[in-house]
Design a protein around this nucleic acid. Structure first.
Lengths: 184, 184
DNA sequence: GTCTATATACAGATAGAC
DNA sequence: GTCTATCTGTATATAGAC
């Protein structure tokens, strides 16, 4: 989903890229500025220059994901005609997380709810509202009257099955878990 | 699910109780021995006496949850006749987590996959296998031929919807998300 | 079984030189 | 924009007294 073309490779972007991956793989409380700095080959004070504190970094991460996935949804709609196939494209995108042992960034943040700032949680909610609305739009285009309910079921099954798929490195678990909401 | 009757109140049990709640609310990387000690009113060295290191604590937590939920499943089968109602009992149990801002303990551990020991992950897998098998058993009792697939769908939707229900303190989200797998 | 005292390591963060 | 140096706080953990 979104652009795979990370053109820029300035420090700020590198920091975001590494922090994003670490948040998805280890959780937001599972890595430090030193972890990022060491991987990039800079000092922690340089990270503080770009992101005054870790909370700023979290906000930047979620904001970037909101934008990135928003573009991703647009791209899917432009390139794929059938709503059903569009949903499958989303599934395939998340299946791609499994091999890298990534979880959904906003899902991870949502789970760390009580340890991050309210601003981050507010943004996480925006991310999921966007996601849910887009899914409902697809179900509506499929002629479903209960499109909102189906969108919630899809999203829940997606996040939950991603948890299990990642646990044992079995991407196909996602397909199996979502079969019910795909042929409803 | 399981026994609500925590009879013993010795230090070891108190530690487990607090650590369990903190793991479910803040994540396993979201609290320290000092957090536990302060809440109970003891010193961190006393925790180390009962659990040599934090990994031992994690293992004890997951083992206790496996036992507790195993009993819970037995109790549900003994007290409820209809498989459909049994599934609803499980849903209601997890809905109870929401008001306390708890997530599934093993789900949380599964998400922190790369920051906990292999032994913990092994136990988390056992927990979910037990859960899945019990669910499949209920679906089979309902006359479903695809009981294994339904069990996976149920479990995925449960974990995923719990994430969203907890995010905004809306227990009913779980019911809405699971409607599809409940009337399949 | 719980404490005090202590050790080592690392966390997030800032001041100021270059 | 990145560095060195430093600060304060906290993490996990151990030794040994009581």
């Amino acid at each position: 989903m979104g652009q795979d073309n990370k053109i820029t490779s300035d420090t700020k972007t590198k920091i975001l890229d590494v922090a994003e991956r670490m948040t998805q793989t280890r959780g937001y409380n599972g890595f430090s500025y030193l972890d990022i700095a060491d991987e990039i080959g800079i000092k922690t004070s340089s990270i503080h220059y770009h992101f005054k504190n870790k909370d700023d970094l979290a906000i930047a991460l979620v904001n970037r994901t909101i934008d990135d996935h928003s573009q991703g949804f647009d791209n899917i709609e432009k390139s794929i005609e059938l709503p059903q196939k569009r949903l499958q494209a989303v599934i395939d995108y998340f299946k791609g997380y499994v091999k890298e042992q990534r979880f959904c960034l906003c899902g991870m943040m949502a789970l760390e709810l009580l340890t991050v700032s309210p601003k981050v949680i507010e943004l996480v909610n925006i991310y999921f509202k966007n996601f849910e609305n887009w899914l409902a739009k697809q179900y509506k285009a499929m002629g479903k009257t209960n499109s909102k309910a189906l969108a919630l079921s899809f999203l829940s099954a997606l996040e939950g099955s991603l948890l299990f798929a990642r646990l044992n490195n079995e991407p196909e678990v996602i397909d199996r878990a979502l079969k019910v909401v795909m042929k409803t």
